[in-house]
């Protein structure tokens, strides 16, 4: 195997691992999947994962040649679809001993598959938050108001993301918008407190929180704490947005 081919393999595997990390998969799973891919190509892999980057060292089992690659972890949207399909790909690669070209084609196909329609996401997020409202004891009118408030807040978030605005600011503004619109429920005799509280739930970073805990439990303390810190900061931003609304409409926080 020539050095060029080895380098090509290394870059592919590094890209695969970085994509998995970026789309919200816990560290041990990324390492397992990446090692499996490496094994299918006859490599031994050592991976060090940091908050923003990862280092891969690959050793060809036949020639004992070693290559290292440092790759930046991209900020990608959370994708359970990529999570499951890229994991399945790693199993397929090792079970069927897929040639590199086939593997690369399948990987490219998965990551360039069509995105879920933004309007579809918008409506589903609205329904999800309205359901949260019901789960917390909200009445039907509160649910309808939360649905509309969530759609507006999420739309603001989508637009600001398109403009690459700082994501902490995005969370503050989205939280403020959703909670302000939900606070219009105060004028009716309905469960408005539940409506306001649940209107911002779509912003809670559930995946980083879960991954952070899993990472710490499984010994990847550095990435775990990093993920939890990020999630905590986002929750603080949500709280700031909600607090602005409460100060405006209630003159107090509670």
């Amino acid at each position: 195997m020539t050095n060029d081919i080895l380098l090509q393999y290394t870059k592919f595997i590094a890209g695969y691992a970085a994509h998995l990390m970026g789309c919200g998969i816990h560290t041990s799973r990324v390492i397992r999947n990446t090692r499996r891919i490496g094994e299918s190509l006859n490599f031994d892999l050592q991976i060090s994962v940091f908050q923003k980057s990862m280092i891969l060292t690959m050793q060809d089992k036949e020639t004992q040649k070693t290559f290292s690659e440092v790759v930046e972890i991209p900020a990608l949207p959370i994708s359970f679809e990529h999570n499951s399909e890229l994991s399945a790909l790693s199993w397929e690669a090792v079970d069927k001993r897929l040639p590199f070209d086939v593997l690369n084609d399948k990987y490219t196909k998965i990551i360039s598959a069509p995105r879920i329609d933004p309007l579809f996401v918008l409506l589903l997020v609205g329904f999800a938050n309205a359901s949260f409202c019901k789960l917390f004891g909200g009445d039907w009118m509160s649910m309808v108001i939360v649905f509309s408030a969530t759609i507006a807040g999420f739309f603001v978030r989508m637009q600001m993301l398109k403009k690459h605005i700082n994501h902490y600011i995005i969370f503050i503004v989205s939280s403020f918008t959703a909670s302000l619109l939900a606070s219009t429920s105060l004028i009716f005799d309905i469960t408005s407190d539940i409506a306001i509280a649940t209107s911002v739930l779509y912003l809670i970073p559930g995946v980083p929180l879960i991954n952070g805990v899993i990472d710490i439990v499984e010994g990847h303390t550095l990435t775990g704490i990093s993920r939890l810190t990020n999630a905590f900061l986002l929750i603080v931003c949500v709280a700031i947005g909600l607090s602005i609304t409460l100060l405006l409409v209630h003159d107090r926080l509670l």
């Binding site: 108001i145 509309s148 507006a152 219009t184 005799d189």
Partner: peptide, 21 residues
């Protein structure tokens, strides 16, 4: 401007409640 449309959409939803309340 979709922001305005969304605010107006929300207002329409409130209007449904107002008819009743």
């Amino acid at each position: 401007n979709m922001f305005i449309v969304l605010f107006l959409c929300h207002w329409s939803i409130i209007a449904i409640s107002k008819t009743y309340f």
